[in-house]
């Protein structure tokens, strides 16, 4: 009986989520807004990526834009120079960001707290400088132009609306994978490391390899986001992958729900929509943006998602007790 209702509510959830995903592009009035919606999707992937590393494993990263950028550049180079299509570029971006993630993990293992923050920030800056100065490969400040739209088995994702569905596939797969992983042994090891590094080691967890895994995983998520970004915007340049982008990625996780799997959905929406809504404020936009974010963090410590979850729970319980009352 309980199992049956579980299945039913799971089915209901799937139907509702599918409906929302399908309806969104129809409600989108123009391509400008469609692009913002797609950017939300890309930032959701970045947010769930950083959550593995920072939210679950407790390793603060202020350099996620570097992985995002490497993913974007690898795709840009493979596509424009190597003539390779989406899937090959995607795999290339994932592999290279994964390797760079593992390499960054080595010095990162030696430091924690604010030193780790500085180290990752420095890493972000180094990668940005490489993008600017390694001109033969990256084309310097001019960036790389004329990246092609993704083509998968002959189907071309050549409009922002088509691209939206491609992004959604990765958002869903990304969330599902993290949701499953976090509930297993690996997720428990991540959380143990966040809660108490040494106690984790003395509980039989190889802290070194699990920290490396967290770095690699979050880098690969960012690499996927980078690949999608490059093929959507069709142009990459060092200006995109700056410190501010790293901060927005971190805030996407913090505002949405630190150490939660679906929190970054809300973080992505808030972080991308807010600056657009505030555009009418002109020069004051960024000030108000900052103030609002501070208020959100003070009002919802741990991010908005845990509060949304509680709210939905309360409504559901009220409905249930209403139904039970009606019967009795």
């Amino acid at each position: 009986m309980a199992k049956k209702t579980n299945k039913k509510s799971l089915l209901a959830k799937i139907v509702i989520i599918a409906a929302i995903i399908i309806i969104i592009p129809f409600l989108t009035p123009n391509m400008y807004i469609m692009q913002i919606v797609n950017m939300i999707g890309i930032y959701i992937i970045l947010g769930i990526g950083i959550n593995v590393l920072t939210g679950f494993t407790g390793q603060l990263s202020l350099g996620q834009a570097a992985f995002f950028g490497i993913g974007a550049y690898v795709t840009a180079i493979m596509n424009t120079r190597g003539g390779m299509q989406f899937l090959a570029c995607l795999i290339g971006s994932m592999v290279i960001t994964g390797i760079v993630g593992a390499v960054l993990a080595v010095p990162a293992l030696k430091v924690k707290g604010s030193y780790l923050a500085l180290l990752t920030m420095g890493f972000g800056e180094i990668i940005r400088i490489v993008m600017i100065n390694w001109t033969p490969v990256t084309n310097g400040t001019a960036g790389i132009l004329e990246i092609e739209s993704p083509v998968i088995f002959g189907f071309s994702f050549d409009t922002l609306t088509k691209f939206y569905f491609l992004i959604m596939v990765f958002v869903i797969l990304g969330i599902l994978y993290e949701d499953i992983l976090i509930k297993t042994r690996t997720g428990r090891a991540f959380v143990a490391i966040r809660e108490d590094n040494e106690a984790a080691e003395l509980t039989g967890i190889n802290v070194t390899t699990y920290k490396i895994r967290a770095f690699v995983l979050s880098a690969v998520y960012s690499g996927i986001a980078g690949c999608l970004y490059a093929m959507m915007i069709k142009y990459v340049s060092p200006d995109t992958f700056v410190n501010n982008t790293s901060n927005i990625i971190l805030w996407t996780a913090i505002v949405g729900g630190f150490g939660t799997v679906v929190g970054p959905i809300f973080g992505g929406i808030i972080m991308q929509v807010l600056p657009e809504v505030l555009r009418f404020l002109g020069d004051w936009r960024l000030v108000i943006y900052g103030v609002i974010l501070l208020i959100v963090i003070l009002r919802f410590p741990g991010g908005v998602y845990p509060y949304i979850e509680k709210f939905i729970d309360r409504i559901r319980r009220r409905k249930k007790s209403d139904a039970a009352g009606g019967k009795g």
């Binding site: 042994r185 428990r188 090891a189 959380v191 143990a192 809660e195 108490d196 106690a199 984790a200 509980t203 039989g204 967890i205």
Partner: peptide
């Protein structure tokens, strides 16, 4: 302990 994890999760972590 892994303070913010549940009691059950703490023991499950021990099975790592």
């Amino acid at each position: 302990l892994f303070k913010s994890a549940s009691v059950l999760e703490n023991v499950m972590t021990g099975f790592h």
